[in-house]
Write a protein that binds this DNA or RNA. Structure first.
Lengths: 339, 339
DNA sequence: TTGTAGGCGTTATCAA
DNA sequence: TTGATAACGCCTACAA
């Protein structure tokens, strides 16, 4: 039964009848203390319910064993399963993780930066392609960091993510194999690297199949449901229509599905749609979405592993680890209807 | 341009040509230092880029200004918007928040408990109805805490959430008003208080409408999509069927919708379905789900406000704050078809 | 194998 | 109005 104030190392020392130095050693370098002493110390720890005060420890050591994960949007369906990979790996190495939610607000980012610079976390995982703390600060004196899901634009921060080009290529090839020759790519972007890479995979596949550029419809989009809906509207103002939609991500695909449904089409008969990410929602939409699955947990695991390595080693150079995604076939792709 | 090591209060003192005590005062009690001195200090702070080391500060003060939010499942669609309410309110009072993800794993809970007991956080927000850290520890020496979304069973921890009874009643009354007389309640539970309260609201409404118990179908369910699907299957093994489904939450409702769709029914013509929560997904499902909206951000805000109050005041007694939810009408409820 | 003592960066007390 | 100084709890040379 612990008393009112948390036990300190001194309480333990008193009960075990040793010095605080010995207690500390018994905890961190057990070999360096005699067996009998060690036992007495352990008993005393059990009695007092002692837990080392992490703040005092980190203050003294100049570093904590916490890793901060910064996410602009906790609700992102990609986030939670990646997080599990990050957490499991961290734990296996004796690190704890804390999550910071920036809401895409630079001021909030700055607050977490303070958290970092006061040594409360040793490492940083970035869950966003944007610079986390406004421009001036970035890279200035960040702790060892790694980015997931979207590389940090123009920085030296290592990156672990999906192989966008290969994944997009798989998606496009699936459409091609189903017989489609007139395909739209929804979600091109001038600023987002991940989008560009997926576009690139799309082009590679269509080039290989000798689909002429006239039969490709490329529309911009920021990767939201709304942007998918919008793209459908834009497309329907043209003379010719594609038979299939390849979407930069599942959110866009959901928007496209919505837009098509709203126009009264019978899916997947009239149009095929394929997404990218495989978010949980992809299952519940109608028809269930054929898509490319991000290996989220694996991404998290590898990212954390890389980060922890860079914590102990000499500063290493930037690395980029790309994981191969799989095609998940559900109901949203069929052979094209002749029009 | 900060140099390699973070500036300390001493660096500032040296540059401002004052003592560290004065620097500290200039920061925390500006009135107690001469205007000219204050200015010099501020300049020095600007030059050095000084940030007070939170760990040293907390060590000295015996408490930090961080609040830990513990969630069993970060992916819970109710989580992210509640979080925003929590964060905003915390920030307005000068507190920072950190999120801990327990994955429903007691060991992980224990780790965060250590985090707490080593003083790295001053307050605790619980996002779960289960005891967070296994039985033995709970309530033993938790910092001031508040629970959100589901009261902590059998504890003295204050609670902020939705008025389940009133909300469920609204839902049932909406079904009743549409003409339904034979209604199923999906998601009853022997252990989950929130489910029980919703069931209670359902009964109140049906009692008031003098619907005899024989016309009520009550099925258990844990509130998952799967449990909704399952309930449909169970129901279809009986002789008589309800005309409407009132689901304990949206996830269940999605499952019910899926199950009904899979059996080839035309919704909402053949059956009406209503949910509870209004998660983002409710919009994308087909037909769009009529449901009861949790005032999530408000819940977060109030919970944090309560917590912060209990941080400064003398220990107050347990409070329970219930917020009133609204009915959101979309497409999944219509008049019953005569069979 | 063990103990003593200094210092990590702060804040707060007490004098000046 | 300011400055010296003692903690906060811990780790780690350095001595014994």
């Amino acid at each position: 039964m612990p008393d009112s104030a948390p036990a300190t190392i001194e309480d333990v020392a008193r009960i075990a009848e040793v010095s605080i130095a010995t207690v500390s050693r018994a905890i961190h370098t057990p070999d360096k203390v005699a067996k009998s002493t060690r036992q007495r110390v352990n008993q005393a720890i059990a009695i007092t319910g002692y837990t080392t005060n992490a703040m005092a420890r980190s203050l003294r050591m100049g570093r904590s064993n916490m890793i901060l994960i910064l996410a602009p949007d906790i609700g992102d369906p990609n986030f939670s399963s990646t997080l599990i990979g990050l957490e499991n790996e961290a734990r296996a190495h004796g690190f704890g993780v804390l999550i910071g939610h920036t809401q895409n607000d630079p001021e909030r980012g700055l607050e977490y930066l303070k958290f970092l610079s006061s040594g409360q976390a040793t490492g940083l995982v970035l869950f966003t392609g944007h610079e986390p703390f406004g421009h001036q600060v970035v890279g200035q004196r960040l702790p060892p960091s790694v980015a997931v899901f979207e590389p940090v634009f123009g920085s030296k921060i290592s990156y672990v993510g999906v192989d966008d080009v290969a994944g997009a290529r798989k998606a496009a090839e699936h459409l091609l194999a189903a017989g489609h020759r007139s395909i739209a790519f929804i979600g091109d972007s001038k600023t987002r690297l991940g989008h560009q890479r997926r576009r690139q995979g799309f082009d590679i596949a269509l080039d290989a199949a000798r689909i002429p550029p006239q039969q490709r419809f490329v529309l911009e989009g920021e990767g939201t449901i709304e942007s998918g809906r919008l793209a459908v509207e834009q497309l329907f103002m043209r003379d010719t229509l594609p038979t299939a939609f390849m979407c930069v991500n599942d959110a866009t695909a959901v928007g496209v599905l919505n837009g098509l449904n709203a126009r009264g089409y019978d899916l997947p008969h009239d149009f095929s749609v394929i997404g990218f990410d495989d978010v949980p929602q992809a299952t519940y939409v109608n028809p269930a979405l054929t898509t490319i699955r991000q290996p989220r947990t694996a991404i998290g695991r590898q990212a954390m592993s890389l980060l922890i390595k860079s914590l102990s080693d000499r500063p290493t150079e930037r690395q980029e680890i790309l994981l191969m995604p799989d095609l998940i076939v559900r109901g949203s792709v069929t052979a094209p209807v002749r029009r």
